[in-house]
Every structure is written in C-alpha cells, then in structure tokens.
Design a protein around this nucleic acid. Structure first.
Lengths: 148, 148
DNA sequence: ATACATGCAAAACATTTGCATAAGA
DNA sequence: TCTTATGCAAATGTTTTGCATGTAT
C-alpha cells in the first residue's frame, strides 16, 4: 500500500463526503485538499496558500480560509493551536492526537502515546467532567536540531 | 495559611523579581498582577483589563498587553492556548501543567494528572526529542453544565 | 535628573464578511 | 438554470508599535 495510494484514497474519501453533503467540488477545493493531504508537515494556512498558488495562482486567501472552515466543520481537518505559534493543521489524522513540536525548526510529528487513554480516564474520574477531546502538545528540540 | 496570605506572598515574590531585574513597580503593574493572582479562573486579557479598570479606570489595554508580555518573559505567567478559544492566562502556577476546560461555561480547572511525567518520558525516549515543556488541555463538560 | 512606563493613536496581523461575478450541478 | 463558490475589498478583532508625556527611582 503506497503513500500515493493512501493520499488518493484519502482525497476520494473527503470528496465523497463533500458530495454527499451537497457541497461542490471545485478545482480550488481539490488543490487545497491535496496540499493538506500531501503535506506531512502540519502546515499553516499561509503554507497551504503558497502551495496552492503554485499550480493555481488565482486562488485567494479567503477561499483557503473558507475551505479550512468547511473542512473543520465536516471533521476532516484538525486544528493545532499552541502558545507561541500560529495555528497549524493536520489533514491526514483529523482526530485528537498528541503532537511533538520542535521549537527550533517548527517541525511537528505525531508520537505514539500509549498512556493517553488511561490519563484521560484518570482525569474524568477524578473531576466528574465528561471529556470529549484533548489537545496534547510536547515542545522541545528534535534530534537533528540538537546537533546544531 | 489563608488564601489572602498566599496571594500576598505571590504578589511580593513577583514584585521582588521585577525590582531585582530593574523593572519599575507602577500602580498599573500592581493592579494587573493582583487581577491575575486573585482570579482563580484563568482570565483572558480582556477580563484582566475590565478587572483593572474598576479600580484604575485610566489603565490602557496596551499597558495590559505590555505587562503580560513582561510577565511571560520573566516566567511568572503561563499562557494557555487552545483551538476554539482565545488565549487565557494563569498567574498562579506559571509552569506547564494540564488544564481541563468546560466548553459550555469556559471554566478552566487544573486537574491532578499523575501519569504525565511518565508519558513525557515515554515520548522523549521513543522519539529522541529533548522535551522542554508541554501543553495539555482536556476539553469537555463540567459536572454543573452536564445537569443543564 | 534621568531613564523607563504609560496612554493614545496608528500600524500590523490574522481572520471574517458582503457582494458582484463565475462556475458546478 | 439555479444555486453555491470564488475573489476582491472592506470590516473585524487582536496584538504590537511609535511617540509625547508622565512618573518611579
């Protein structure tokens, strides 16, 4: 199962969902979706905009924002907010999951965190809150930046 | 040890740190500090501004922002960012710690999370990152809002 | 007395909105 | 054809900045 096939599958899934909900498939939306799906680097709005403009120079920033909001509403994109950085987005895994952010090169990766469910349960039990989602960010320095 | 004594102690600590670093103690800074320290509710900038204006009506929003930046720089205030909400601040525990946010009434509390250190160590070991801090937010509905 | 802080207004950003036009269904 | 999406520009909201004045030290 190649990366390209995964990307194509994911794109088709989202397009199907848009059709199903009577949203229109436009070249701009396809280009924006591709930018999100092909980026493994949790891009910012601005990065997606620059990326889309390469192949579709007339696209406006407003359309990128509108599309991002649409994708958030249908649950196909995850917004990552953290103190000290602008918003970033994950179009590949649009459900709550932890991120590990290098504060020097701004790279973001998705670590495996086996204790997270247990931790969430602990908090829910201790406080009586119903917990719907979480936002877990670790900030640090990646191996490559540590060498510099 | 009463709450008032704790507040006074915390205020004195921060004032000492400001003096030590040759920042000036102004009535506005004291009022802003008190607003942060007395609020148990992780206030927003706007809330602090409104709070300060009650006793000090000439204070400007710019001064609140400048003071917040100063307090962040000297490490005496923690900025809490999360998707779907503006920034909030914690002037009482200015070090990384988890928050539990009610998405209905916007109340924020600080739960005990015993597994967090272990989780952080797990991530550092698995990825090779040096982890300096974390931002852990749980989003849900508090017991009181669940009843409504 | 002399820096530094304040407060105002303007500027800088980020994001949203209104509306005429273009284009997908 | 008919409605929705786009793109522009204006509006909104938030945070920062420049600068003259006030004030802590």
């Amino acid at each position: 199962m190649s990366k390209m096939n995964n990307s194509q599958t994911r794109l088709d899934e989202i397009l199907a969902k848009l059709r199903q909900r009577d949203f229109r498939i436009t070249p701009q939306r396809i280009a924006i979706l591709k930018a999100f799906i092909q980026s493994q680097n949790h891009p910012s709005i601005e990065q997606v905009y620059e990326d889309v403009k390469v192949n579709f120079p007339t696209t406006s920033l407003a359309t990128v924002y509108k599309t991002v909001n649409l994708l958030k509403e249908i649950g196909e994109i995850l917004e990552i907010s953290f103190a000290g950085g602008g918003n970033r987005y994950d179009g590949n895994r649009p459900y709550s999951h932890p991120h590990l952010i290098c504060t020097q090169c701004n790279k973001i990766i998705d670590p495996q965190v086996s204790l997270l469910d247990q931790m969430t349960a602990e908090v829910a039990k201790a406080t009586g809150y119903r917990i719907d989602s979480h936002q877990v960010q670790f900030l640090g320095v990646c191996p490559s930046c540590q060498k510099k």
